[in-house]
């Protein structure tokens, strides 16, 4: 690779967030983001989300360049999210990335979204070789690095933990602004009573759909009979879901002999989850690393950072290979930048 600093533009838009970030050799120069917020009781649909992204991605790009004080000629590579995620929003952002790369005559780089989260977490926290808990609206995985792959030790066998929380928020008509998970977290702080919910850890894997069905079924009855409050339900759901996640993370750490845990993904900015993970790590004599909402929640800089690592080890994506894919597992990526 050519000597001198490498500047990478990262474009992200795999779910309801669209972001553009510029990273130069481990330094985040800019990282603006916009979120599509559907009305209470509704989720974000691919078509609507793609329309939202189309409407603001170019303004975001300009903002990112301006904030970084960069001219397009100073960008060395255009990275974008190849997958996994929702098809329509992914294509929208990929189309812009391809056009930019061709206009500026720069290499293009398709990045795995999950790898983006991991690399951003490592960059911001300085964790060397952590066991990663990746928790978001679309993904729930426990990951450890070995032999040039991020290996998935455990994962959800149905819906993601964030999806479970989002859909529970819809049942109670909790606002999606700024995000359903954030509002559940605030309500949970006022919960007083632990409602018993199914606890579904299956070996190294977890299942959330049964818990969601259960709570969907009992919520309105329990609330009507004043057996519990909405706050109690938020509290109980969080405690149950997070206990399951902590259990499988701890098992993965024990298996790998890991002394570091890193939480990434949108749910990773939940302070209660971080607190529970922190207790587990303290008991094991391990260290917990987490980031705040700027870098936990989907953003452009994380794609730029993973792209930077890939680019400096010689990876590029040819235009004809730059198709997006809704399914793209973390362990499909060859990690060329780590020993």
């Amino acid at each position: 690779m050519a000597p001198g600093p490498i500047t990478v533009l990262g474009l992200e838009g795999s779910a309801n967030k669209v972001g553009a970030g510029l990273v130069r050799d481990g330094q985040v120069l800019s990282n603006p983001r916009r979120t599509f917020v559907p009305p209470p009781g509704q989720g974000f649909l691919p078509g609507q989300t793609a329309r939202h992204h189309r409407g603001c991605v170019l303004a975001l790009l300009q903002e990112a360049l301006q904030e970084a004080g960069l001219d397009p000629s100073q960008v060395d590579c255009v990275a974008y999210t190849k997958g996994p995620g929702m098809g329509a929003p992914l294509v929208t952002v990929a189309v812009v990335a391809r056009t930019l790369a061709q206009l500026w005559n720069k290499p293009l780089l398709g990045v795995n979204h999950c790898v983006g989260h991991i690399e951003m977490g490592r960059l911001i926290t300085g964790a060397q070789n952590p066991t990663v808990l990746y928790v978001s609206g679309g993904n729930t995985q426990v990951i450890a690095y070995s032999e040039h792959r991020y290996r998935i030790f455990g994962e959800t066998i149905d819906i993601a933990v964030g999806n479970c929380l989002d859909r529970f928020a819809r049942v109670l008509k909790i606002s999606n602004d700024p995000s359903p998970g954030y509002n559940i977290e605030q309500m949970a702080k006022k919960g007083r009573q632990l409602v018993e919910l199914p606890y579904t850890v299956k070996g190294m894997d977890v299942s959330f759909s049964g818990i969601l069905s259960h709570i969907e079924e009992v919520a309105h009855k329990m609330l009507a009979s004043e057996e519990c409050t909405p706050e109690d339900l938020c509290f109980s759901l969080q405690e149950t879901l997070f206990a399951m996640l902590v259990e499988i993370t701890e098992r993965a750490m024990a298996h790998c002999g890991s002394r570091e845990a890193l939480v990434v993904g949108g749910v990773g900015c939940n302070m209660r989850l971080q607190e529970m993970m922190g207790i587990m790590c303290a008991e094991r004599g391990a260290q917990l690393f987490a980031t705040d909402e700027r870098f936990c929640i989907d953003n452009g800089a994380m794609i730029a950072q993973a792209g930077w690592e890939m680019f400096r080890t010689g990876q590029v994506t040819q235009l004809e290979d730059s198709w997006i894919t809704q399914r793209y597992r973390t362990d499909e990526v060859e990690v060329t930048w780590r020993d």
């Binding site: 189309r54 991605v57 500026w104 005559n105």
Partner: peptide
């Protein structure tokens, strides 16, 4: 519809970030 949406986005991108650098 989606094809035309993407085409429009490409054209907008060119308007804002073009013209292409000479090669």
């Amino acid at each position: 519809n989606s094809f035309l949406d993407h085409l429009a986005l490409v054209i907008q991108t060119m308007e804002m970030f073009g013209p292409p650098v000479p090669r």
